[in-house]
């Protein structure tokens, strides 16, 4: 079972690499496209660029990621808290839920400049936007989890005359953990995207800045290197959550990404 999965992942990666190199070769040597290097440079040359500019690129990435992570943590905490409050009080849910939905209708692209103008601080804006994007999927999934606790499971607690606090700690929260992890899995790459986006609005450091400047400055290899690093960060964030899920939810039979 595990072996199969590893083989599949390996094959898949190999396929992507081959396809990439193949298309790049096709553009450069068969179509003799003069722009081939800008349209799709060889993967190995991009990796070479990353290696050659490693400290520069990794520093930029670190700035973006650290802000994204802070925003992610804050957004997740706020999302969990709101979900718990909404599950405890119907009134709170009735008041908060419409705002939640409306908040999702504001495009981040529009929101980001507004926030930046308000706080006038790049780092803070990055954190706020990342938190904003994390918040909703976490709150919605967590609330979904809290609401799907089977009545019999609650009845058991009721029969022991358990206090509300115990009901939450011993039943509601552990039950909702898998739902929470689903929300976090959606939110993690989003928070990275948000942070990159805010970079582009004119911050000083950050991988988004590299992306933008190299695009306009004509440094194609740096541009592609940044794109690849952004993608890698996004995927990595998701993997970290999946790993956390494996550790935190040992009772789950099917591995994540299996069924459902």
């Amino acid at each position: 079972m595990k072996k199969n999965k590893a083989t599949a992942a390996l094959l898949w990666t190999a396929g992507v690499v081959l396809l990439w190199e193949g298309v790049a070769f096709f553009l450069a040597n068969i179509l003799h496209d003069k722009m081939a290097n800008a349209k799709l440079p060889y993967l190995h040359s991009i990796i070479y660029t990353i290696a050659a500019n490693f400290s520069e690129i990794s520093n930029a990435a670190l700035i973006t990621v650290s802000k994204a992570a802070t925003g992610f943590a804050l957004g997740a905490a706020a999302g969990i808290m709101l979900a718990v409050i909404m599950s405890i009080s119907k009134t709170a849910e009735k008041i908060a839920f419409p705002y939640l939905i409306i908040s999702q209708m504001i495009p981040v692209l529009g929101l980001a400049p507004i926030i930046f103008n308000l706080v006038r601080n790049m780092d803070l804006s990055r954190i706020i936007i990342a938190a904003y994007l994390t918040f909703f999927p976490v709150a919605a999934n967590m609330l979904g989890g809290l609401k799907s606790v089977e009545p019999e499971k609650r009845e058991l607690m009721y029969s022991y005359a358990a206090k509300k606090r115990s009901v939450y700690i011993k039943l509601m929260l552990p039950f909702s953990l898998p739902y929470l992890m689903t929300g976090l899995k959606i939110a993690a790459p989003l928070s990275i995207t948000a942070s990159i986006l805010v970079d582009m609005l004119g911050s000083k450091g950050g991988i988004g800045v590299k992306l933008l400047y190299s695009l306009y400055g004509g440094e194609k290899d740096i541009f592609w290197a940044s794109v690849l690093v952004c993608a890698a960060i996004g995927m990595l964030s998701c993997f970290i959550i999946i790993l956390a899920e494996k550790i935190l939810i040992p009772w789950k039979k099917t591995s994540s990404g299996g069924e459902e």
Partner: peptide, 15 residues
């Protein structure tokens, strides 16, 4: 807490 109840389905906590 003088009742011990065995439900028709086991109602165990998965975690």
């Amino acid at each position: 807490k003088k009742y011990g109840i065995v439900f028709q389905s086991p109602v165990l906590y998965d975690w």
